[in-house]
């Protein structure tokens, strides 16, 4: 299933030569705190990720992610508590299912699914968060700037 080619052919990248921009939706209780731990531990990371705080990964409406891509995000990241560890007990299970479906939908829309990732980072895993930022940034850099969309939704 190749995706990008036909749709993207005529569109131009949002900004060539700039650093890729990744939007991250982080749950307040685990991953946002994990990113805080990375900060407290002074774990140097690439500057590509912009964090939006949500109460729970279950709050992340797939439409937010689509909107990010529509507005030109080069990558989108969702991170929540590890399965079973959700502060609200079940939110990340719903998120997991929704986001798996979304990944397939992105493919259908002509967005490379590799531009979207979901992770589980706990409050104490600063190291892991730094690693997620590093690997995601590298991957998105390798993919190049996201193609521009007129309107998706």
């Amino acid at each position: 299933m190749t995706v990008n080619e036909p749709v993207m052919a005529e569109s131009e990248p949002v900004a060539v030569g700039r650093e890729p921009l990744i939007v991250g939706f982080l749950c307040n209780w685990c991953s946002y705190a994990g990113a805080d731990s990375a900060g407290t531990g002074r774990m140097v990371q690439p500057t590509n990720v912009r964090i939006i705080r949500v109460p729970c990964s279950g709050r992340v409406n797939p439409r937010f992610i689509l909107r990010a891509f529509q507005r030109g995000a080069d990558g989108v990241l969702v991170s929540g508590c590890h399965p079973n560890d959700c502060h609200y007990s079940t939110g990340n299970f719903f998120a997991r299912r929704r986001l798996m479906v979304l990944k397939r939908y992105l493919e259908y829309l002509g967005i490379d699914p590799a531009r979207f990732e979901a992770h589980w980072v706990s409050a104490s895993e600063g190291q892991k968060w730094a690693e997620v930022v590093r690997s995601m940034s590298e991957r998105v850099k390798a993919l190049g700037p996201a193609p521009k969309f007129g309107s998706l939704v």
């Binding site: 109460p55 709050r59 409406n61 909107r67 507005r71 030109g72």
Partner: peptide
């Protein structure tokens, strides 16, 4: 969700990305 409304979340997304275009 009060405090994290759809409108607020989308405004954050837009603001972050609107800068570039």
């Amino acid at each position: 969700l009060a405090g994290f409304t759809n409108d607020q979340m989308l405004a954050e997304v837009d603001e972050l990305l609107g800068w570039y275009d």
